Each structure stands twice: as C-alpha cells, then as structure tokens.
Simulated assay, not measured.
Amino acid sequence: MDESRRDRDGEGRARNARPRDGLGRPLPYGAPGVERQPEGVVRSPDETVREAQRLLDAGMPFHAHEVFEDAWKSGPDAERELWRGLAQMAVGLTHSARGNTAGGARLLRRGAAALEPFRRAEPHGIAVGGLILWARELAGRVEDAGQAAGGGHVVDAAAEAPRLRPGAHLG
C-alpha cells in the first residue's frame, strides 16, 4: 500500500487502516493487530458497560474508549457527559499505559470531573463514585511514578482496569 496516501473508508472519510495493538498504537501495514472496534455502533447502556468492561479487563482501554465514544455520540443529551467522562478515563488509562504520564493523569482527572454530576445517581448501575476515586488515585500514582522515573512510567492497563459496576468480575 502507498503509505503516502490517506486511508479512506467506504464513504471517503479519512480512516487509518493500519492495524493497531491493544493500546491503539498503529502497527506497520501487514502486521497482525488487534481487531478494531466498529465505529458508530448503537448499544444499550447495559451493552455499552459490558463491552467496555470486557475490553478494560483485557487491557484494551483504547478500544473501551471507542465503545464509550459511541454511547456519547448516540445517547441522550442528558448522558453525554457521563459517557464522555468514561471515554476520557479510558484514554487516560491508555496514555498512562503507553508511558505518557502527564497526558494520562490529565485525562484521568478530566474524566473524573466530568462524572461528578452523576455521583449520586449512579446511572445504569455504574459505580460513579468509585470510578472518580479510582481515576484520581491512579492519576496521582502515575504522575508520581513518572516524575520519579523521569517520565515514561508504564502501567499495566489490565491490572489497573477499573470496575464499572460494583461487584463486576473479570471475564
């Protein structure tokens, strides 16, 4: 494939067709990669939470962010900030696992702030209060470890995966 041309989807929109790893990093054309999440899938809130939890547990927060992004774009206006905040947390975990400690911490905190208005309601059984605490605690650890190591600290995305619902178990 001519790598100087932009990849396009069936409707002509720019879409990178390079394979990606579990953290969403592009791999060389032809390399085996992780199956990408289809874009624009409309799921129920329960399906969204279950699929995102499966991806988080598998150490694939970048792909979980895409699931949350679909809910953010297709869901009711009243829930946009909920799904956007969850997507930001997943991207924060992604950046932290890639070694971008400053960006990871910033996005984890931004996601936690977006979830604050949902803390009491816990929509769709999502453990909002626990997720806010998780994101802020992880942001602090990532930042501290990055500063101590001179940057580039990498966390294990699967080991750090949050529980979206109380009592949610792996697998």
Rank of each mutant, 00 (worst) to 15 (best):
A121E: 14
P38W: 07
F68E: 01
G150L: 03
L27I: 05
A168S: 13
A102D: 15
W83H: 02
E116G: 08
G167L: 12
P162H: 11
E69T: 04
R43I: 00
A121T: 15
A17I: 14
A14H: 13
R120F: 11
R36N: 07
R106Y: 11
R18F: 07
V41L: 06
H95F: 11
G99N: 06
R84D: 14
A52S: 08
R15K: 15
I132N: 03
G59I: 08
L164N: 01
R141A: 12
V41S: 00
F118W: 04
P28I: 09
A157L: 08
S44K: 11
A114V: 03
P45E: 01
L108S: 10
G10T: 04
R6M: 13
D7M: 12
E47M: 04
V91A: 09
R110V: 08
G85I: 09
P32V: 12
A168H: 14
Q53N: 11
K73V: 06
E66W: 03
R141M: 11
D57R: 08
A161D: 04
V42I: 14
E69G: 02
R136T: 11
A97V: 04
E79L: 11
L82V: 14
E39A: 14
G92L: 01
E81D: 15
S4Q: 15
E79G: 10
D70F: 07
P61T: 13
G103R: 04
I126G: 06
G167S: 12
M89A: 11
M60W: 06
L138R: 04
A158T: 09
N16L: 13
A121M: 10
G75R: 00
V128C: 03
A113L: 14
